[in-house]
Design a binder for these strands. Structure first.
Length: 106
DNA sequence: ATCATGACGTACG
DNA sequence: TCGTACGCCATGA
């Protein structure tokens, strides 16, 4: 059987993130089978606008946007705020409240 | 096959 | 809280 590409699985997981919620790179990596979070980040970098994936709902474990401000980080923050995701004074998100609830069965 | 790089994570100070 | 160091693994030269 042909297994789906790792990236495809990652893209699929990202597409399942509900609006107003966020997921961490590590969380996505566990959803797709436990690959390293680095691979998730690599897949994220390959996302094009044509895919129309909610890439902006993916943040790092510290609840902060990984992108640089001059590389689209400010854009990501705007989109999240537009969905109701609140940022801390230090520019962090309260993962306790906004992290996507997932049940990782192993 | 090896080397360098990357939208990460955890550990340590 | 922040910076540094190391591990992680896929991709490109």
């Amino acid at each position: 059987m042909s297994e789906k590409s790792l990236f495809e699985a990652i893209f699929e997981a990202i597409g399942k993130i509900p609006k107003g919620k966020v997921a961490t790179y590590g969380q996505i990596s566990r959803l797709v089978g436990g690959c390293s979070a680095r691979v998730v980040g690599y897949a994220m970098a390959r996302i094009s606008e044509d895919m129309k994936l909610p890439w902006h709902r993916v943040v790092n474990s510290k609840g902060r946007v990984s992108l640089k401000e001059n590389d689209g980080g400010d854009i990501q923050r705007e989109m999240l705020e537009s969905e109701g995701v609140l940022f801390d004074e230090t520019g962090k998100i309260d993962l306790k409240k906004f992290q996507w609830e997932t049940f990782v069965s192993e």
